[in-house]
Each structure stands twice: as structure tokens, then as C-alpha cells.
Write a protein that binds this DNA or RNA. Structure first.
Length: 887
RNA sequence: GGGCGGUUAGCUCAGCUGGUAGAGCGCCUCGUUUACACCGAGGAGGUCGGCGGUUCGAAACCGUCACCGCCCA
């Protein structure tokens, strides 16, 4: 479908208010007794970064959300899909800084205020990119409700949350080691640190023992430069080699500081020499050792990870890696390097800046995650919020139960500035308004004093943690909050369970006393066709917009949905998208066929009242497909639902029903023809509905084109989801048509194997057929004749003609007199092969049935089915053997 | 080191609560017919990673090993 059509349809949807919450589907309204009482169904979008553009992960994520949203809308629910964007502190600031850099400027030159203005300009400029792209994908968000994490209302909510948590002692300031990104010059949380494997070295360094310069204690390190901050050496308390040294001192080379040798469990006797240097200000483990032994903490790095004034002058100002080099040279010159091993180890790197982070001693703001996590853990344990697939709950628990204090301050400019003010002596004042801050300060000091606001901003995730609340208007008691919270579903990737899902759970429960969502559906990663993670450096990024351009949004959506099996990554190949584009084309052509044959929707058409077996069969098949699609979507098994609709449309409707109906449709006017037309139109209509959540564009376009005569009074997006009950199913028709399909398939197979030219019509005779079968044959002879290219057909009485090909369908033997075309040897081979195969099967089944354990213990119906199958197989085998014996 | 996934047709993967395997693509053969060659018909192709166990019965459940991947240290 050309993209202009998609664009036009999207505009029509949007302009008609089809995506607005607060109204139930027009078509479904009657079914639920009026839109006003419709049950709410809500999803908040994972807010994309303002500077972002649509990547494959977004495409998958939003396709799945849109499928559920459109489904709910058609089911008559009052649907809200809440859109919006995230200010994405670090990421956005980096983008703008890079732009400044290109202009030869820096943010420091610009100053904070001007810089933020600049970021807002950039936000206004690029912020609409991704929402435009989401529209291209077909995402049916309630756009007028779009929010941004730095909107006034949302910022006020963030402020309120900070103040309340502060007053509840759940936010506090602390001086401890943080993950410091020396490139971005900010603290980051544990989650933003990525462990990267690096092939490095393990240097064994001799530290002279005090008072005995000829003797050494050897320590091993991967980071020699940190030795400048060493304040102790630790050995294991049980380590006999060093017991006598505990409490004595070593001398730090290059610096000359006395290092006490302490006994601590942290030292692993099996690791290296068993003695480990302790740098409390630059290593998380050493920090703990330092606390236990009351060691001095010497910070030797500045904010850009250069050696600072606490180190010997020779090293000051050197970058950490230059310092390492120089230190090693110097140690080597002094003969203090005992050994160098190649050593592969993990180096912590900032996920944004990409450079190794430094554990650095600074004062930062922390949230007491442990306290906040408790109710959030309980809510998942008790099932108030369910994870799908369930496995992810384990991941959630694992992290939540070992949660660390959450560092929420960032040394950035773009974000929510921390609403804490400092008095002249550093006293902290945190209040809702500046007036209250001033009042509190005055009360504290007894006079007006100058106050300074904290320079730092909050972690981006602090505000997105409030997303389900704030987008609905919290802290105001809005009708939306009342109606749509808790939301029905959250759809997101596993990579942000910790960053986002967990924190929304904490804040939702803490501030609104309820979980933010009923169900959390976690989808997989989209990889390339080879299963590789897509990344810029690998150059294997597939751009969803290019694919949409090339194959249409429907094809991309359908492909993503059909590949979204739970618990497995999506491997996206263009070939598959092409195949699904073909599927859309197939549907288009089928609709065209219906149109050409005058298939128009009949007002008041009752699918349960059709009389033709083909029509009855189709109705039943559609109802079965509807049930499977419902089951798939209700269980979030998108792949199953997609495959079910695919097979119904292509396999059942196009391949069989359309072919079956051709004689009627192309025949004379009359009740048979008009029922075929009405049934086809009805089925196509139901197909458009069932397929709409997956392929909204092509279905909407066809819907508008198939309204013949009678104008559609609403668009498909607002139509009712099919909901047929068992009363439309006709079992007799199903059996009869399935038999016809078996007959045709069998004859076609024989024809192909016997190389009967497709143009040749051949006669068909049935031997040993029951009266029921003969009656069926009579009723369905036209279908069989047309689709299997049969000239004449009838019952075979008496002796079977020689030189005929025989095969078996149920109890009947099909006799195809093909004396002139068959190759006797070939036919003999075919029959023997078939007989041998059946013999094998029969032997297996006989063995099973002879097993007393099976007949006694297996459920009766399983045994019965087995007996039946065996009898059928035997019957078929005997008939084929009989045919073989005639050669 | 701890945890979690995966291993099924040439490729990519389905197979939900155990009853002897499916799809798409690819491949081979054929192609009459005004919906569609982005198509139709037919076909080939699998000891369901190895071993052991539970069971009347295991691709599915349990154990174990091998290999691959992810997360956390």
C-alpha cells in the first residue's frame, strides 16, 4: 500500500477522534449497552527520548501496544493509550553539547541558563520526530494528551515527590563512593554502569616492609595508578604466610607513605600473592575495608580522572592512563615489579559516555530504595501485578531483594534541578515553594539569609518513575487518574525492568497506594537476520522507516507480531517482511475478487442461518479462528494470533472458500449465488476486523471500499470485534467439507505423481463407499469435479477396471482409470511404499495396544482413538494391498 | 563464580496443561482457470543436542553432560 494512503488513513483516524479516550467503539457500543459505561483499558507508552528516532525496538514495542489497544477499542472498552516523551537527561545533554562542540563552543562558555534554553530549542525542533514516526507505524495514541517529563505539571509532581521523600527520610545526602563518569563529569547509578571485558595485565608489585628494606610484601593489581591513594595492605586473617606481618607497616613506593598491614576476609589467599593493596577512595571493596579498619581515604583523582594535588608532584595533572604508564616505568626502574601477568578482567564503563568509570568519593543524593522496594516486591508476589512471561518476575525479585541505595543526583544541567537549598553554613532546606524555603531558613537562622539552590539535577528515571501517575494528572485528583489508574498493561523490554518498571512500582505504591499496572508484558530484543544485536558499530541497524517505506507499515507490524514469541528474541529478516507484504496483497486481491463478484454485505445477515455446506463450513471455520485469535491475544501470544489469522485468510478463505465459491458466484442468479455472495462479504468483513489490530491500514482501506451501497457510518478502527458463539457452527458441514478437501487433495496428489496434465479431465469412481459418502459425492460433485479436474464420477460396482490408479479416502477406494498414462512400475512402487509405510504405523500402534500397561492406565478415550486409528490404517492398507495385487 | 534462557526440517523459528512433529522462507516438479506469478497445485526433507531417569507413553517432566546466548558479581 502506498505511503500516501497510509498517511491519509492515519489523518482520518486522528481527525475523527478515533483514538480519544472516553468513548467506546461506535460499532461495539450497542454490544456493551452504551459507550459511557464501557470498562476502561489503559496503557502508558514507554516515553521515547525527545531526541530519539524510531528504531526497531520501538517498532516492536509500539506495534504490540497498538495491537492490544486496537483490540480493546474494538471490544468496546474505553481505551486510553497515553503518549509522551522523556527528557532523557544525559542523552539529550550530550547531543546538544556535541552540537555546540561543532560550533566550537562549550556549555560552560554558554552558561547554564543559555545552555538550557538551547536544549529546549533542540527539544522543540527534534521532539516531534519520533511522534511522527510512531504515526507512520500506525500507533493509535491519544495524541492531544501527549506529555513530556519536563512539562510544568510533571515537574511540579517531581518536586512534590522529592520534598515528601526527603521529609520521610527516604531521600538523603551522603558522602560515599559513587560511579563517576570522568567524561561526562557526573555521578551515575549502578545500573548505568556496564561491565566490559578488557584484556589487561595483573602487575605484581613489591612494597618494602618498614624497617627492613630488603624484604617485601607483594601485592597484585590491575590498576597500578591507584597506588598513589593506597592507605593499607590487607591479608586474610587465616593466611599463615602473613600472620606475623599483621599490624606492622609497609612503605608505599614512589610516595613513601606508611601502609598498615591489616587482616581482613576480603583478601583472598588464593588470588595472586594473597596480599592486596587497599585504596579506600578509589575502589568499592577497598572502601568497605577502609571503613572496617578506620583507614584514611585519600582521593588522588580530580573530576576528569587526572591525578590531583594529593599525589606526589611528579604525577599531578597526568591523566589516569598516563599516570599508570609513568608509575610502571618508575617502579620498573626501582626493580619493584615482581611479575606481570596477562589478565582479562571486567572494567566498569559508563553506558552513555563509554569511558571507564571511577569510584570516586563525593557527596550525592540518594533514595532509600530498599524501603521503597518492599511493597513493590510484595505486589508482584501477591499477583497484584503480573509479569508475562512469568520468568521475568524472578529477575525483578532478584534485583529488588538486593537493591542498593539509588543515587539520584546528576552533575548535569538538563533535567529537574534538585529543589534543595543551602544556607551559608550548608544547612539544607527542602520545601514545596521558595517562599516556604525562605520561611524555614528564617526560622532556622532567626534572620534572612542568602540561599543557594543545589546545582545538580535528578536522574532521568526519577521523573519517568512517576510516568503512570503524572500523565494522568497526579497529584491532582483528576477523573483520568480515577478512571485509568492502575493501567491495564505495560509493554516494555527486559532491559528497563530495573531502570523503569521497578521504580514505577515503588513510586506508584508509595504515592498512590496502588500498583501502576495490572500486567507487565516483557518483550524480547529485535536482532538482525543472523541473530546479531543491532548496533551502530556493527553497521547492522535496520531502520524501521525504510522498511515501512518499502513494504508498508502493515507488513512490518505483522512481521514483528508474528515473530514475537514469548521468551525468544525477534530475528528480523527482510524476506519475512516481504512475505507479509505479499499477505497484504493477497488479502487485497481476495477483496477485489469479492467486489468483482458482487459480494456485498447484507443487512441483517445471520451467519448461523446459511444453508449451503460450504458457507456453513466457512462460518464455523471463522468462528474457530476468532476463538484462537482471542486466546492468543488474551495470553499475549502475539505470534500465535498472527499465525492463526494468516492461515485463516490465506489457507481457509483464499485457497479453499474462494475456489469453492467460484461456481456459485459465477453461476446464474438465484438463492445459491446470493448466499455465496453474502457469506463471502460477511467473512471478508469479519477478516478485516480480525486483522485490523495487526494490519490497520490495509484493512481500514478495504473496509472503506467494501461498504457497497450502504455507507459505513464509522471507520473500521471503531468497529466491533467479532464475537460469534457456538450457534453459528455446523458440525455436519465441517465434516462434509473437510471430506471434500481430503478428496480433492488426494486426487490432486495422484495426478501430480502420475504426471497427468493439468488440462486433462479424468473420471473418478468410488468403490466400497458408504451410502453417506455416496450422498456426499452427489451433493459435492461440482466442487470435486472443478477443483480436482474430474470429468465424470460415480460408484464403482463389481470388478475394478485393470490399469487404474487407486487410493483411499476414509472407507472408500478412489479409482482413477488412467490406463493410458500410468507407468506400471511407478505405480507399483508408489503403492508398495504406501503399504509399507502403513504397515510400519500399524505395527507401532499394535504394539502399543498389546501393551497391557497402556490399555489399563491410559485414559479410555486415548485408547479408543488409538484403536480407531489403527482400524482405519488397516483398512486403508488392505485396500492398497488389494490394488497392488492386481498388478 | 551465581542466576536465567536456548539447542526441533537446508535457514529462521512455532509446538500453551505429556498421547509418536508444524509454519514461513529456501529447494524440486508442474501450471488448465479474467482475484492474485507479491500467484496456484504437488513434493522432498526431521533418530526433536548427548546420556540417564519418571511414565503405559517424553520434543514436552526430572537429573546430568556438552555447546550457544543473556543478566548479575
Amino acid at each position: 500500500m502506498p505511503s500516501e494512503v497510509e498517511g491519509r488513513l492515519y489523518r482520518e483516524w486522528e481527525e475523527s477522534g478515533a483514538f480519544a479516550c472516553g468513548t467506546a467503539a461506535a460499532g461495539a457500543a450497542s454490544a456493551v449497552g452504551g459507550g459511557g459505561n464501557a470498562q476502561p483499558y489503559s496503557i502508558v507508552i514507554p516515553p521515547p527520548n525527545v531526541t530519539g528516532s524510531l528504531h526497531m525496538g520501538h517498532a516492536l514495542n509500539n506495534t504490540l501496544q497498538d495491537i492490544m489497544i486496537r483490540l480493546a477499542r474494538m471490544r468496546g472498552r474505553d481505551v486510553l493509550w497515553q503518549p509522551g516523551m522523556d527528557h532523557a537527561g544525559i542523552a539529550t545533554q550530550m547531543v546538544v553539547e556535541r552540537m555546540l562542540e561543532a560550533e566550537g563552543k562549550s556549555r560552560q562558555e554558554l552558561g547554564r541558563e543559555k545552555f538550557i534554553e538551547r536544549v529546549w530549542e533542540w527539544k522543540d525542533e527534534s521532539g516531534g520526530t519520533i511522534t511522527g514516526q510512531l504515526r507512520r507505524l500506525g500507533a493509535s495514541c491519544d495524541w492531544p494528551r501527549e506529555r513530556f517529563t519536563m512539562d510544568e505539571g510533571l515537574s511540579k509532581a517531581v518536586h512534590k515527590v522529592f520534598v515528601e521523600l526527603y521529609k520521610q527520610d527516604l531521600i538523603y545526602k551522603d558522602k560515599r563512593l559513587v560511579n563517576w563518569d570522568p567524561k561526562l563529569k557526573t555521578a551515575i547509578s549502578d545500573l548505568e554502569v556496564q561491565q566490559t571485558e578488557v584484556a589487561g595485565h595483573l602487575w605484581h608489585i613489591n612494597y618494602p616492609l618498614e624497617g627492613d628494606s630488603g624484604r617485601f610484601i607483594t601485592v597484585a593489581t590491575t590498576r597500578p595508578e591507584t597506588m598513589l591513594g593506597d592507605t593499607a595492605i590487607a591479608v586474610h586473617p587465616g593466611d599463615e604466610r602473613y600472620r606475623h606481618l599483621v599490624g606492622t607497616y609497609a612503605i608505599l613506593p614512589l610516595v613513601g607513605r606508611r601502609l598498615i598491614i591489616v587482616a581482613d576476609d576480603y583478601a583472598d589467599p588464593k588470588q595472586g600473592s594473597g596480599a592486596v593493596k587497599i585504596t579506600p577512595a578509589h575502589d568499592f571493596n577497598d572502601f568497605e575495608v577502609g571503613r572496617r579498619h578506620d583507614l584514611e581515604m585519600i582521593n588522588v583523582l580530580d573530576e576528569e580522572a587526572r591525578i590531583n594535588e594529593n599525589a606526589p608532584a611528579a604525577y599531578q595533572g597526568l591523566d589516569r592512563f598516563e599516570a599508570r604508564k609513568k608509575i610502571l616505568e618508575e617502579l620498573d626502574a626501582q626493580g619493584l615489579i615482581a611479575q606481570i601477568d596477562d589478565h582479562t578482567h571486567m572494567v566498569p564503563c559508563g553506558d552513555r559516555g563509554g569511558v571507564p568509570i571511577e569510584p570516586w568519593l563525593t557527596e550525592q543524593w540518594y533514595a532509600d530504595a530498599e524501603t521503597l522496594a518492599k511493597p513493590a516486591i510484595e505486589a508482584v508476589r501477591s499477583g497484584r501485578t503480573k509479569f508475562v512471561p512469568e520468568m521475568w518476575a524472578k529477575t525483578y525479585f532478584e534485583w529488588m531483594e538486593n537493591i542498593q541505595p539509588w543515587c539520584i543526583s546528576r552533575q548535569l544541567w538538563w533535567g529537574h534541578q534538585i529543589p534543595a537549598y543551602y544556607g551559608p553554613d550548608g544547612e539544607i532546606f527542602v520545601e514545596m515553594t521558595y517562599g516556604e524555603v525562605q520561611a524555614a531558613a528564617k526560622a532556622h537562622y532567626g534572620r534572612e539569609v542568602a540561599l543557594v539552590q543545589d546545582e545538580d539535577v535528578l536522574d532521568t528515571w526519577f521523573s519517568s518513575a512517576l510516568w503512570p501517575l503524572t500523565t494522568l494528572g497526579w497529584p491532582e485528583k483528576t477523573p483520568e487518574l480515577e478512571r485509568y489508574y492502575p493501567t491495564s498493561l505495560l509493554v516494555t523490554g527486559f532491559d528497563i525492568i530495573f531502570f523503569w518498571v521497578a521504580r514505577m512500582m515503588m513510586f506508584g505504591l508509595h504515592f498512590h497506594d496502588d500498583v501502576p499496572f495490572d500486567t507487565v508484558y516483557i518483550h524480547a530484543l529485535v536482532r538482525d537476520a543472523k541473530g546479531q544485536k543491532m548496533s551502530k558499530s556493527k553497521g547492522n541497524i535496520i531502520d524501521p522507516l525504510e522498511l515501512i517505506e518499502k513494504y508498508g507499515a502493515d507488513a512490518l507490524r505483522f512481521t514483528l507480531a508474528s515473530q514475537a514469541a514469548q521468551g525468544r528474541d525477534v530475528k528480523l529478516s527482510e524476506q519475512r517482511i516481504e512475505g507479509n507484504r505479499n499477505f497484504a496483497t493477497k488479502l487485497w486481491n481476495a477483496a477485489r475478487f469479492c467486489e468483482m463478484n458482487g459480494c456485498a454485505m447484507q443487512p441483517g445477515f445471520d451467519p448461523g442461518a446459511v444453508t449451503g455446506p460450504v458457507n456453513q463450513w466457512l462460518v464455523g471455520q471463522l468462528k474457530a479462528a476468532q476463538d484462537r485469535i482471542n486466546a492468543g491475544l488474551d495470553g499475549y501470544r502475539f505470534n500465535e494470533a498472527a499465525n492463526d489469522v494468516y492461515h485463516f485468510v490465506w489457507g481457509t478463505f483464499c485457497d479453499w472458500f474462494v475456489e469453492f465459491s467460484k461456481p456459485a458466484l459465477q453461476g446464474d442468479d438465484g438463492p445459491i449465488k446470493s448466499e455465496a455472495q453474502a457469506t463471502a462479504a460477511w467473512a471478508l468483513d469479519a477478516i478485516l476486523r480480525l486483522l485490523h489490530p495487526f494490519m490497520p491500514f490495509v484493512t481500514e482501506e478495504l473496509w472503506s471500499r467494501t461498504g457497497q451501497g450502504e455507507a459505513r457510518d464509522h471507520m473500521l478502527v471503531r468497529a466491533a470485534w467479532p464475537d460469534y458463539g457456538d450457534e453459528v457452527v455446523n458440525e455436519d458441514a465441517r465434516e462434509e467439507i473437510e471430506w471434500v478437501i481430503r478428496m480433492i487433495t488426494e486426487i490432486r496428489s495422484i495426478r501430480a505423481e502420475m504426471n497427468v496434465p493439468p488440462s486433462a479431465k479424468i473420471p473418478l469412481l468410488l468403490a466400497g463407499a458408504s451410502p453417506d459418502t455416496l450422498a456426499r459425492l452427489e451433493r459435492q460433485r461440482d466442487l470435486i469435479a472443478t477443483l480436482a479436474r474430474i470429468s465424470e464420477m460415480g460408484e464403482q460396482l463389481g470388478e475394478l477396471p485393470s490399469g487404474s490408479v487407486q487410493t483411499v479416502v476414509d472407507e472408500a477406494t478412489l479409482v482413477l482409470p488412467l490406463a493410458d498414462v500410468i507407468d506400471l512400475d511407478q505405480e507399483r512402487g508408489r503403492l508398495s511404499k504406501a503399504v509399507a509405510k502403513l504397515d510400519d504405523q500399524i505395527a507401532g500402534m499394535a504394539k502399543k495396544l498389546a501393551n497391557k500397561g497402556f490399555t489399563d492406565k491410559a485414559p479410555a478415550e486415548v485408547v479408543a482413538v488409538q484403536r480407531e486409528r489403527m482400524a482405519e490404517a488397516e483398512q486403508t492398507r488392505d485396500k492398497l494391498r488389494d490394488a497392488l495385487s492386481r498388478f
